[in-house]
Design a protein around this nucleic acid. Structure first.
Lengths: 353, 353
DNA sequence: TTGTACGCGTTATCAG
DNA sequence: CTGATAACGCGTACAA
């Protein structure tokens, strides 16, 4: 069955397509009578506007491209959720693509999206710091781009991120306040800005508290449970092993905790752990894991809002850098003082005759 | 900066747009020389094909709409991942929309996607069993639709689901084999097919094992931790409380386990629990939760494949019903026999002088 | 091998 | 208030 166009309606009513168009779009320059007649027949013929034609004519597709490493990662799924909610309310559609952390795939996706005439790109950059030629090239195409989470500092491109430095600082400061003195750090990828920033926060918190920084306490690993176990084993082999970890990955933090359990080391009494990202499981564990919330839904909404501003801002190119504040969620895996206090109470209770 | 079109290239080379088009598309009817010249200048002028114009002309947008209740749910995010991987390999783009389980939103999204001239829709149906007029109406529009997970039985519409009955049956059978005799069931929503099927599997397994079915053991609740706790409390109040739960929701299963712990009831020794969906956290818990894997990524890939078949199948309308097999993952929360055996060994070890 | 002319569905502009 | 026409960018049947 062929789709009905405004021409079909026009023919049926013996008027022109232009008139039909005006009627459907509630143009002021049309008689009430024709307007209603047109709308009625349009409904009867099950007319559906072809946005493609509109897009071709207007130069706006009302589609926005989103590029992430993996959709199936709670963080990114949540960001996308925020983006979709904000943009669909403004009649934009969200096209999603994945890079699997391969910058070659990123270039391909970008290219395909541009071909599809998207009105903008919201992306979390994949790969190492090098290669950003393809991103700079985007600027010339005059397509609004918004980076979120993993950004690059490119003049003219807006970004929405969290203050990773602050997140790292707060996590470390908290561990210090809980009485930990030898704090290790799991860094996910030394070549990526977000991890560098968390690392920097870690170091600065140590420094501010007069705790010497020991580079042997810093281990680079993948965001992965097994890697966390391995990392912990490595730390325990040291002459002067740490009594806490600030991990840039919740998964590695979980691995570390599992390994600590296996080695009969008590968490948090003897060893504290703080992760990063607030993955759902961190809250659900019986030994819940302290972590840093990144507010992914809000990040997505904000990225979408910045995009909408740029679209509506006309030709004035605005470079906006939004930095959201992370929030440390203190849970059991690092509540050392409280755990020790409880234990003490128990002991004294037992000692009472 | 204006985007360059084939017209711009044509003008520059003093040829016609048609020739440029042929050159870029590697038409056989063009000289090697012009082809190369055109491609070279196209590159220099940073030409990008406008797929919108192509779509308008060809009637194919190469965009596919995906409708889910929530993107930020591990199951759906994984399905989408599978869809994206499969479709992007065939040069289709994936447009995602959410319904928040509101069938009104579903209708709106469907409408918007049709306006956008998508080439097909892959969707998990929201809402209760009633209202399926809008879905039937789709058939007339001649747009390929594939249901996944939550489907409706509508003639002419293909679907990809898992065998929920089998999942429910296997989970219950397993509990029986572990020695549980009074098995309760958490059903998420009695009006939805997938939950009805799991429930049916539960009942049939009981019957096949000669265990009487008690409707008081069946509790309807939301897929939610708090609801799971409430459900468990309700069960324990009974005169003859159960010794196991097959929960259609991992979250409710977790809630039940947390409440069991709070009430000092030993899992799995005194009470076994099996969930459904294999949410990531079920594996990560120290007391890992047995659950039923639904293979969401494969489901997405399969849905995409069925769509591609229909697209390529020409006019022959095929109705394909793919049913994937679920897989029971037996973990600690229901490994009663093993736990009892271990305990016994420990006891006898302790008793040895 | 290349050019000419048209159509995809819509809206904007100009004329009536 | 309505009709006629051009334009968006592309591919292609037909003509040369």
């Amino acid at each position: 069955m062929k789709k009905t166009t405004i021409y079909d309606i026009a023919k049926k009513l013996n008027i022109t397509a232009a008139t039909v168009s005006r009627a459907l779009n509630d143009s002021p320059r049309i008689s009430e009578k024709t307007r209603e007649l047109v709308k009625k027949t349009a409904f009867e013929m099950a007319y559906q506007q072809n946005k493609l034609a509109l897009a071709l004519k207007s130069g706006r597709s009302n589609n926005v491209g989103v590029i992430v490493p993996h959709i199936n990662r709670n963080f990114f799924a949540s960001v996308i959720q925020g983006i979709e909610e904000e943009l669909s309310a403004h009649n934009f559609h969200v096209i999603i693509t994945q890079t699997h952390n391969d910058s070659k795939k990123e270039i391909e996706n970008l290219d395909a999206l541009l071909n599809a005439q998207i009105d903008g790109v919201l992306m979390s950059v994949s790969g190492a710091m090098e290669n950003e030629e393809h991103l700079k090239a985007l600027l010339k195409k005059n397509v609004p781009i918004i980076f979120f989470d993993k950004k690059r500092d490119i003049e003219g491109i807006s970004s929405v991120t969290i203050d990773d430095f602050q997140g790292g600082y707060d996590a470390t400061q908290h561990l210090i306040e809980e009485g930990c003195t030898r704090i290790a750090h799991f860094i996910v990828n030394k070549t990526e800005q977000i991890y560098q920033e968390r690392f920097r926060g870690y170091k600065e918190a140590l420094e501010d508290n007069g705790i010497p920084y020991d580079e042997n306490y810093v281990i680079e690993l993948e965001s992965d449970i097994e890697e966390g176990k391995k990392g912990l084993k490595q730390l325990l082999k040291m002459e002067n092993p740490p009594d806490a970890i600030f991990s840039s990955s919740d998964f590695a933090a979980l691995g570390a905790i599992q390994e600590l359990r296996a080695q009969k080391i008590k968490v948090p009494e003897e060893f504290c752990v703080v992760g990063f990202s607030n993955e759902p499981f961190t809250k659900f564990m019986i030994l819940s894991i302290s972590t840093v919330e990144q507010f992914p839904v809000e990040m997505g909404q904000m990225a979408a809002k910045v995009f909408l501003e740029q679209i509506n801002g006309g030709n004035t190119r605005i470079e906006k850098k939004v930095v959201l504040s992370p929030k440390l969620y203190i849970r059991k895996s690092s509540s050392r003082k409280e755990a020790l206090k409880l234990k003490e109470e128990k002991v004294s209770y037992n000692e009472t005759p």
